[in-house]
Write a protein that binds this DNA or RNA. Structure first.
Length: 487
RNA sequence: GGUCUCGUGGCCGAGCGGCUAGGCACCGGUCUGCAAAACCGUAUACUCCGGUUCGAAUCCGGACGAGACCUCCA
């Protein structure tokens, strides 16, 4: 890798690509907002996790020692559309007739399955909100001590007005409090907040809450944003390198996290904030409330009404990485099919690569290609550009295969290792080999033998009947010089 | 309504001052009994109108269109 190439990443705080300078040389501390376990994550959620998984893999590839923390929200005080605090996990539990612990456990298991399905590397730590109630209480106490919180009727709120005397509020999302006030609905009469922009740090227990914890302010639940502050501090420190999450968390979640961190420890928790863009369906953000979502499992099983057939998880992952993490991505069957075809070419080329015979000279600029690939990674984790380089490699593999290009044994080994590393380790693309069905294999062997016999006798009627008949049930015959295969 | 982002060829999607992104589809070729598959190759583009510049998809201004956030959301 070139020493003069440095990693650039887009920092949401500045709105610019900046050189990445870690707090501690060679190390990266990264915190990413994970799932809320009140339902199964949908494909849009998965896109964000896939993108940050790719970023994590890039850091590892570049030789950084990474501490990757992704939280699991299993305690649920968030605000619903009516502006009232609602225990969303409790609501889901009632809906499914399960206790909250059961529901959290159930979706946690599902989420772990999805991680394996989509080949997400496990983070170093996956802390849960319920496992860190004490830490959250301690952060709230610190905010209290610093004068940025107040208690009202058993709940605790962050005092944005007091905070704004010492720190700017709204720097990440570019919002001005005066403007926000204009746009926000009136404080309603029962509201305990002193100021519209104040947000809950601790919420007094409601009669129907299923999860309740003790605190100095009475029984209740932690506020939505406080778990990230408490857990990121515990595992990465008061300030660390990167904080990531979906674009839609920018405001208010991440903005309030910054306020909490400044309010308790006097600094922004992260030096670089990274936001992954949304997955769109028909040009619109995939979301629960719009109902235009499907589950990561449905697309693999082919049970989503949006698609006429199943797609392998590795194909879906590949499709997602063909778009940059900061762009919205529209998922359609046509686009997915295009990716699937390209994916198959990549798989084929990998197979051919194993059979290439080295020459005594190399007719290709291997170093330039490697630099271009690394350059794509260094330029704000540009996965689509990296994939384009992979296809450039595919072109060379075929050229070598038909004798139009050569590589020495040494270069071929180097090339193969690098190509494989980019594909499997960096992009995280695995080729799933369909579990063979022995009986079908046997039948196909007979069919192909029959067809071959007919062909050798120039009995085209019979050979075409076999070929076309199989095509009707979705089996494609592929003739080549090496013989006939099917899929 | 406010803030912000974006409009690239048939589709998806990079690039973001001069150099073919890439994938899929299309078309031509090689191969084939004919096909398919595979491989090789050609073509097609930057929403519109102004401006800056020797030069703009790329910078600036405006129009139109789309989306996100402002309320739970990855």
């Amino acid at each position: 890798m070139n020493a003069d190439q440095s990693l650039l990443l887009y920092n949401s705080l500045s709105g610019k690509k900046e050189p990445f300078i870690p707090l501690h040389e060679g190390r990266v501390g990264m915190y990413v907002c994970g799932p809320t376990l009140y339902s199964e994550p949908h494909m849009g959620n998965m896109r964000t996790f896939i993108n940050f998984d790719f970023i994590y893999r890039c850091f590892l590839f570049l030789g950084y020692s990474v501490k990757y923390v992704r939280n699991i929200t299993d305690a649920g005080h968030i605000t619903n559309s009516a502006g009232l605090e609602v225990d969303s996990i409790g609501s889901a539990a009632r809906l499914e007739q399960l206790q909250s612990l059961e529901i959290v456990y159930k979706y946690n298991v599902k989420f772990q399955e999805l991680q394996r399905l989509y080949n997400l590397l496990p983070p170093n730590i996956e802390p849960t909100a319920t496992g860190h109630i004490q830490e959250q209480i301690e952060v709230i106490e610190q905010i209290f001590t610093n004068g940025f919180a107040y208690e009202a009727n058993g709940s605790v709120y962050f005092d944005v007005k007091a905070y704004m005397q010492r720190f700017p509020y709204g720097t990440l999302s570019g919002r001005k409090v005066e403007e926000l006030e204009h746009e926000t609905r009136e404080l309603n009469a029962q509201d305990e907040k002193r100021f519209f922009a104040d947000f809950a740090l601790w919420k007094k227990a409601q009669p129907d809450d299923m999860q309740i914890w003790r605190s100095p302010w009475g029984d209740g639940n932690p506020g939505w944003h406080i778990e990230c502050t408490a857990m990121s501090t515990k595992y990465l420190g008061k300030q660390f390198d990167i904080h990531g999450g979906g674009m839609d968390l920018k405001f208010p979640h991440h903005e309030d996290e910054i306020a909490q961190n400044c309010g308790s420890f006097g600094c922004n928790p992260a030096r670089y904030w990274m936001h992954a863009n949304m997955l769109n369906v028909n040009g619109q953000k995939m979301s629960k409330s719009l109902g235009n979502f499907f589950l990561p499992k449905e697309i693999v099983e082919g049970s989503s009404p949006l698609f006429s057939k199943p797609y392998a998880a590795s194909v879906v992952r590949f499709f997602m990485l063909q778009a940059h993490y900061r762009s919205t991505l529209d998922i359609t069957e046509e686009a997915l099919n295009a990716s699937e075809k390209g994916f198959e070419r990549l798989v084929e080329a990998t197979g051919i690569l194993q059979k290439i015979i080295p020459s005594d000279a190399t007719t290709w600029d291997l170093e330039a290609w490697k630099n271009a690939a690394v350059g794509a990674i260094l330029d704000d984790f540009n996965a689509p550009m990296l994939i384009a380089q992979l296809f450039e490699a595919v072109r060379i593999i075929h050229a070598m295969n038909i004798g139009n290009a050569q590589m020495t044994s040494e270069d071929l080994t180097d090339f193969t290792a690098f190509f494989t590393q980019l594909l499997h380790e960096v992009l995280g693309i695995e080729f799933v080999h369909q579990a063979g069905n022995e009986r079908l294999e046997g039948v196909m062997e007979v069919m192909l033998a029959l067809r071959q016999q007919a062909r050798s006798q120039q009995d085209w009627a019979t050979s075409d009947m076999i070929r076309d008949g199989l095509a009707k049930v979705g089996i494609q015959i592929k003739d080549s010089k090496e013989g006939t295969t099917w899929s």
